[in-house]
């Protein structure tokens, strides 16, 4: 036990030294109401999606990683599909973006099939788009106004857990914001604290 306690102490110290050496890149905080970064990414079928082409539509971005338990939480019972299905149409486009370093069009296609997602999962394995948006979590949500300014950023809902049983009692911030936007109202909670896994960036 003594040995264990010492090795624990040593490892803790080693960890601290390591973190002080590690470089600290800072992700930007996109401001509500400001223009969002443009991107061009491929979906799971190899089709190119260019954000600028979606002007005059409300665009929802959903940071995605099929291995993350917080993402699974919203898919195993179809909740994310249900919310997306309710809003996607002439006015609203919903794009999942996978910035996981190991993501490929094939892995995204597999995830889309497994969870019956009929919307694009964009491949951002380089992490460039995720970093431009300051995405730290999966899931992390952004809503873009028709003029391509930021309307919402933050969590999918109000209960930060990985338990699908918590969805029913949570406020879905994205649904709420989309309802407000479609009714021509300002988003009442434009910014919330996202929760989830860290985005598994390449660097």
């Amino acid at each position: 036990m003594r040995k264990l306690a010492y090795s624990v102490a040593l490892l803790v110290l080693a960890a601290m030294v390591f973190t002080q050496i590690a470089a600290k890149a800072k992700l930007p905080d996109l401001a509500i109401g400001k223009a969002v970064p443009d991107f061009t990414l491929e979906d799971q079928n190899g089709k190119t999606v260019h954000l600028a082409d979606l002007k005059n539509k409300i665009v929802v971005l959903e940071w995605f990683n099929e291995s993350c338990p917080f993402v699974k939480k919203h898919y195993i019972k179809g909740d994310m599909n249900a919310v997306a299905g309710k809003y996607v149409g002439d006015d609203v486009v919903w794009l999942a973006i996978n910035s996981t370093k190991t993501a490929t069009n094939e892995s995204n296609a597999k995830a889309a099939k497994a969870w019956s997602m009929d919307r694009p999962i964009l491949n951002d394995a380089t992490g460039a788009t995720g970093k431009a948006y300051g995405a730290k979590n999966t899931p992390q949500m952004y809503i873009i106004n028709k003029d391509q300014t930021l309307a919402y950023r933050g969590a999918i809902d109000s209960k930060s857990s990985a338990d699908a049983g918590d969805i029913a009692g949570a406020t879905n911030y994205v649904a709420k914001a989309l309802d407000e936007l479609k009714a021509g109202k300002p988003v009442s909670e434009p910014e919330t604290k996202p929760y989830g896994c860290s985005v598994k960036y390449a660097d």
């Binding site: 490892l11 803790v12 973190t19 910035s99 992490g127 730290k136 985005v199 598994k200």
Partner: peptide
């Protein structure tokens, strides 16, 4: 806790090893 600086500048607070 200790701080872990993860890829992309995502900072975590917690415990490694034990």
């Amino acid at each position: 806790p200790v701080q872990f600086d993860q890829a992309g500048g995502v900072v975590g607070y917690g415990y490694r090893d034990s």
